[in-house]
């Protein structure tokens, strides 16, 4: 089932990428990133099945990081919303150099 798992992983990842590229809502883009992380997790699990459980441990770490990222990222989005009254990334350019 490895090849199939990787196939699904790749498709999900690509969908996440397309989501990031086409959407402007910060929260949705954030969720797309979560989707990409999940796609990667799927490959990890699939490979772990063949090459050892270290891959599953990695998934564990990825989830932790994802949780931390969600906490901080959402906090940033909330702060941004308070500041700009929007989460549309087109209207947010405080990173402009």
């Amino acid at each position: 089932m490895l090849a199939e798992a990787i196939f699904f992983s790749a498709v999900l990842f690509t969908i996440g990428v397309i989501g990031v590229l086409t959407r402007r809502n910060a929260i949705i883009i954030f969720m797309c990133v979560e989707l990409m992380l999940n796609a990667v997790n799927l490959s990890f699990v699939a490979f772990a099945r063949a090459y050892g459980v270290a891959g599953q441990v990695f998934v564990f770490f990825v989830m932790t990081v994802a949780a931390a990222e969600a906490a901080v990222g959402l906090a940033i989005i909330i702060a941004m919303f308070r500041h700009k009254q929007t989460v549309n990334l087109q209207n947010i350019n405080i990173l402009k150099g």
Partner: peptide, 11 residues
């Protein structure tokens, strides 16, 4: 990638 050829392994 060996695909389905890989046996159900260590997991």
């Amino acid at each position: 990638v060996p695909g389905l050829a890989i046996p159900r392994g260590t997991a």
